[in-house]
Amino acid sequence: MLDQPIAQIRKLRVEFQTKDGPVVGVEDVSFEVNPGETVCIVGESGSGKSVSSLSLMRLVEFGGGEIAGGQLLFDRRDGEEMDLSKADQDLMKQIRGNEIGMIFQEPMTALNPVFTVGRQLTEGLRIHKNMSKSEAETRALELLRQVRIPEPERRLKQYPHELSGGMRQRVVIAMAMACEPRLLIADEPTTALDVTIQAEILALMDRLKRETGTA
């Protein structure tokens, strides 16, 4: 349904266990995201922006956090709405990267330095989309063209450290968009880049959103 939000966060509460007892990371956060919509979360450093977005991916648990209350309603590709806060990690593995993509703040932490760009782009496609090696490579080239990377055939054979910061972030966006997720979460995707490239990356994300309907 087009008028149905893709994601609804309702009264989210996240706690972190410390030696002095639980510390509240975010409390009573609610917002929704509709198809093809961009929602920006603004706040000072430490206000819980990343915690909120990592909760939707259920990645907050890997950093010692716990979803202590609220709902994370997600409208899945097959039309079934579910509360991600209650999903098990096996199901989350299928959803992560496939139905919800993520772009992190620092591209070098999102990319594996020991694998080529091509290997990293094709991995998700082979896992989530059951593509053959050659199908995944064709799609990887298409993605690099989509994010406006020059000489894409050459880039596939390169390693992350051989690319500039702006180009690495484009690869990260290509990886996040590879399986055509319904929802793309970007955690300060332009912080590590200079101003001209920031504008390009934001325009790129806006164009991909219009072309694919990703929220």
Rank of each mutant, 00 (worst) to 15 (best):
L163Q: 01
L163W: 03
L163R: 07
S164M: 13
G165E: 05
G165N: 11
G165L: 05
G166F: 01
G166N: 08
G166K: 09
M167P: 01
M167H: 03
R168H: 00
R168D: 00
R168E: 00
Q169F: 11
Q169T: 09
Q169I: 07
R170I: 02
R170Y: 07
R170Q: 08
V172D: 00
I173R: 12
I173H: 10
A174S: 03
A174Y: 04
A176V: 01
A176H: 03
A176I: 02
E180K: 15
P181L: 03
R182L: 14
R182D: 04
R182A: 07
R182K: 15
L184S: 04
L184C: 07
L184W: 07
I185K: 10
A186T: 13
A186L: 05
D187Q: 08
D187T: 06
E188Y: 04
E188D: 05
P189E: 13
P189F: 10
P189R: 14
T191Q: 06
A192Y: 13
A192I: 12
A192L: 13
L193R: 09
L193H: 06
D194L: 06
V195E: 11
V195G: 11
V195C: 11
V195P: 03
T196K: 11
T196N: 11
T196L: 13
I197P: 02
Q198H: 12
Q198Y: 07
Q198K: 12
A199F: 12
A199N: 15
A199P: 05
E200F: 08
I201V: 14
I201S: 10
I201T: 04
L202E: 08
A203S: 15
A203G: 14
A203I: 05
M205K: 06
D206E: 15
D206H: 14
R207W: 01
L208T: 10
